[in-house]
Nucleic acid binder design. Structure first.
Lengths: 136, 136
DNA sequence: TAATCTTTGCAATCGAGTTGCAGTAAATCC
DNA sequence: GGATTTACTGCAACTCGATTGCAAAGATTA
């Protein structure tokens, strides 16, 4: 397991206090985190600093962003070797009744064959509807 | 071809001046329209009235909404027999450089097998990256 | 050390979406 | 038909996530 400092060094992001704690938080969470999630978790760190940190991280492929239908962009640390290609990509199911987001790991996503010379950076597959609990 | 009035009658939406012009505009456009698009096209109609009209239309399955990666919800008239099931569904490709959205009609989307008792209402498949013109 | 560049924190702003409210129009009831 | 209720509209204001301007603090380079 790499330390935050090692990851930042590899990804060529200068290490600072804010960056370390943001990255540490992201690494410690199982689920992708929104800006608000991070802000709440890091009580004494300014929102805009976190925001700019996330932008920097994204730019340098430390993390990638995810649209899961909730309306808030979520962020997760890139797995080793991740070029943010949709590899461990999965559908997100957003329940329009209870506002919960489900990761549908079992539903396969086929390889997306883009037109000639298009470059893939990110993919978001969001399905909305009612979850089993709300569909009664 | 049905008139706006006929469509509204079939979908059980009371006909009003605002609703007629909003529906007429949507029918006249090739591309799905955002609230702002409609607002700009209908200079003397209030934004919130258009907004509420769109909500009403969506509720009564006159139109469906689409997230295409642009950050603005787009709306399009349902095709005949459309239950807003992802049937004529296609990927959207959003170019992060020039901000254009492309409809990828040629890329197939497989049937999405949801978990037991989940109900599908809508699906949005958004791919982001660089279009051929910006990928140079 | 001085000059320069980067990062940070605060406050302010943006923009899409949404809501409260009062006035008007349409539908319903007696 | 007139009164009452319900629905629709326009305006202004507000929400909330995202983003930016700016000055102070910190790090880097000359």
């Amino acid at each position: 397991m790499q330390t935050e400092e090692e990851i930042l060094k590899i990804k060529k992001v200068k290490n600072t206090a804010v960056r370390t704690v943001v990255l540490r938080h992201l690494l410690s969470q199982e689920k992708a985190q929104s800006l608000k999630d991070i802000e709440n978790a890091l009580a004494y760190t300014d929102r805009s600093s976190i925001f700019r940190t996330l932008k920097k991280f994204e730019e340098n492929k430390v993390i990638h962003s995810i649209e899961d239908g909730s309306g808030m962009t979520k962020y997760a640390v890139c797995a080793k070797g991740c070029n943010c290609d949709p590899k461990d990509l999965h559908y997100h199911f957003y329940c329009t009744n209870c506002d919960k987001t489900f990761c549908l790991f079992d539903v396969p996503i086929p390889k997306i064959q883009l037109p000639e010379n298009f470059k893939l950076q990110q993919a978001n597959m969001v399905v909305k509807g009612l979850c089993d609990n709300c569909n009664k």
